[in-house]
Amino acid sequence: MGIFRRRTTSRRATGKDPVAAFWQWWADDGEHLLTTATRAGDFDAYVDVVTRRVKAIARGLEWETRAGTDAEHALCVSSGGDPSLRPIAERWYRASPPPTRRWEFIPARSAKPDMLDSTITYRGRTFDLSRTRVHVATTPAGYGFIVSVHNPGFTGQWDDEYGLCVLLLEWLLGEDDVERWVRRIDCIAYDVVDSIPASELPDRVAALARSLPEPGWLLMQGTLGGGETILVRVLRPLRWIDHPRFDLHTALRASFEADAQGLPTPESSEALDGFEDALVRAMGTRGMLVAVETSKGIRTFHFYSDSEDQNGRDVLDSAAREHPTVSARHVLDPGWKKVQDFA
């Protein structure tokens, strides 16, 4: 059995929204073309056509067709594990028409655990996936796993085999759950004593998910290099994949009257809390506050929102315009790297 994956390699600049153009093509010709070709098993009839349409949306997006869950077929446009592309795949999905009896649409590869019963050809080599085993270690923070993947066919050629390791985990968990729960993936040429059959990994993930507390705020205190106190309040778990459209980071910095430690006076604290509450209410579902830093007379609010939603950004820019002690700085940050030190 061969693996068919198609990754696009360029982006075409046009005056029209490429996502809207894709769905217009789908309504005009695409659905009929893919339905006919997929039923006939005639892949050559549509591969290049669909690739060109997906390529026009963004470089690096991947796509595939598969059997649907509630429809006959599913069309998946995927980021291929690239955080910078996941918001684009999500926008493609949110712009899709309602599912029909024939077609449904997904923005990330769903799990296909039956693939672990297969023997496949990957980059010219044959692998019996049923013999795959994994070693699973919980990360120190307790919110994910380090997963080491072993198959007897592995030879230590990591450039070739790492891609297969990722595929195996995507088939077991689904693309988004790999991002959600797997912090690191290692390929190992030799099995280890406490490994488990790969098919047991979904149960391990489900058990961890059940054991975690409800999302909430964690308060931390530390000392900066100059001896100043820093307070950090952060949302846990801090996972961008749960909010894939929120790719714009805004650091909203508010200066305040500080005490000797650089922390807010009681009056300043009350004013800052009221300011935060008003911001969160104004943002609503357009964005979210994920972390707050306080030190040396500055409180920094870390917000994420959809970079294509100007209204969300405007809420924060308005706050900066209306308060002379407040400034806003925006930067694209899919994957939430700006706040990973707090994770």
Rank of each mutant, 00 (worst) to 15 (best):
I3F: 13
S10F: 13
D17L: 07
F22T: 04
F22N: 03
Q24I: 06
W25H: 00
W25F: 07
W26G: 02
A27G: 05
D28F: 06
Y46D: 04
V47Q: 13
V50S: 03
T51V: 00
T51Q: 09
T51D: 14
K55S: 13
I57Q: 00
W63V: 05
E64T: 06
T65H: 13
R66Q: 14
D70V: 12
E72A: 10
C76F: 12
C76N: 13
G80Y: 07
P83G: 09
A89R: 03
W92Y: 01
W92T: 01
P99Y: 00
T100K: 00
R102D: 15
R102E: 13
D117A: 08
T121V: 15
G124E: 07
R125A: 11
R131L: 14
V136E: 02
V136D: 00
A137T: 13
P140E: 15
A141I: 03
S148W: 00
H150V: 00
G153E: 08
G153S: 03
F154R: 06
T155A: 15
Q157N: 11
D160L: 15
E161M: 14
E161W: 05
L172C: 08
W181G: 03
S199A: 15
V205Q: 07
A207Q: 14
A207G: 08
L208V: 05
L208G: 06
L208D: 09
R210Q: 14
E214A: 09
P215Q: 12
G216K: 04
G226S: 06
L235S: 05
R236C: 05
P237L: 09
H243L: 12
P244G: 01
R245K: 15
F246N: 02
R253Q: 07
F256I: 11
A258T: 00
D259I: 02
D259E: 08
A260Q: 10
P264L: 11
T265E: 11
L279P: 00
G284I: 03
R286C: 07
G287A: 13
G287H: 02
R299F: 06
T300L: 08
F301V: 00
D309K: 03
D314M: 07
L316E: 03
D317Y: 08
S318F: 09
S318K: 11
H323L: 11
R329D: 12
H330E: 05
V331R: 13
L332P: 03
P334W: 08
